[in-house]
């Protein structure tokens, strides 16, 4: 029973982080209509910068610097590269983000090298006890911060002009343009937010399970993809649900894979993708998307 509760707590915390990451991913998708393969690059740059800055200026400064760095790289990706590309179809632009990702991740990985860079977060390995649940303090903080970030985002989404523009755009540039929405602004702010959210989740993912910054962190950003798609690409609520589902499944897999047999070793690593296949097989459009009628 204990392990079940712990798995739940762990899953919730992890799920919240994946939700944050998926949210950033979906925001970018709604703005530009591409699968952002550079999400991992944003995450890695942000976490790397956080590590570097925290060395001289402490953890809080590092976090701020990291978030900013992630946002800036994201904005550069959109304004310098994607926007000015002469080929504008979504397939090619998606591959462009893939190329950008490869470039940035290669360079940052080179700088990180084979060591693990420390993040110097003040909590470290502390553990907190909540009733029957024992969880690392970091995970609890992660859950709280993620929920705050999500709440802040939802408020922005519902009550600001930016949010309104976002909701209207939904990649239908024409409709938005007709309504006088400054799409270029919506575009880069969306990418900035996307990048910052990626870094936010990355900062916590770099604190547990294995503390420290390694190039492999960039790959965790790929979890945003199934999370967003499960919920229905383009759906903000869907990203949240998808992220939480992903976190839960992964945490449970991690907790119980040992008892499932040798074939299940490290199952948690691919649980996200298996979940994706299962969901799409049952509901090809994702959980919260409507099937669209094509008009000619």
């Amino acid at each position: 029973m204990d392990s079940l509760l712990n798995a739940l707590a762990s899953g919730l915390s992890l799920g919240a982080l994946y939700a944050v990451m998926a949210l950033g991913f979906v925001v970018i998708y709604r703005a530009t209509g591409v699968l952002n393969f550079a999400h991992g690059a944003f995450l890695l740059v942000g976490v790397y910068v956080a590590s570097i800055v925290s060395e001289k200026h402490g953890y809080p400064a590092g976090v701020l610097a990291g978030l900013l760095a992630g946002a800036v790289v994201a904005v550069i990706a959109e304004t310098v590269f994607l926007r000015h590309s002469r080929t504008q179809d979504h397939v090619t632009l998606t591959i462009l983000t893939l190329g950008l990702n490869l470039l940035v991740v290669t360079e940052v990985s080179r700088r990180i090298g084979t060591e693990t860079l420390p993040l110097r977060d003040p909590v470290g390995n502390e553990v907190v006890q909540l009733g029957a649940i024992t969880m690392p303090t970091v995970r609890l903080i992660a859950l709280v911060v993620a929920m705050v970030a999500i709440a802040a985002f939802l408020l922005l989404f519902r009550y600001t002009n930016w949010g309104l523009s976002m909701r209207v755009s939904n990649q239908d540039g024409e409709v938005a343009a007709l309504m006088g929405v400054r799409l270029s602004v919506v575009s880069w702010t969306s990418w900035a937010i996307g990048g910052a959210l990626a870094v936010l989740s990355g900062l916590f993912l770099a604190s547990f399970p294995t503390p420290g910054v390694t190039p492999a962190l960039a790959d965790t950003a790929f979890r945003a993809f199934p999370a967003a798609v499960i919920g229905g690409l383009g759906s903000v609520g869907g990203a949240l649900v998808g992220g939480v589902m992903l976190g839960m499944v992964e945490a449970f897999a991690a907790t119980y894979e040992g008892s499932l047999g040798s074939w299940a070793h490290n199952l948690s690593g691919i649980s996200a993708w298996v979940l994706l296949l299962v969901v799409l097989l049952l509901r090809p459009q994702g959980l919260f998307s409507a099937r669209q009628v094509q008009r000619v």
Binding site: L35, V91, P226, V229, L233, V274, L280
Partner: peptide, 10 residues
Amino acid sequence: GLYLAVVTIG
């Protein structure tokens, strides 16, 4: 299309 791309990553 795009969903399929994600499936192939999986």
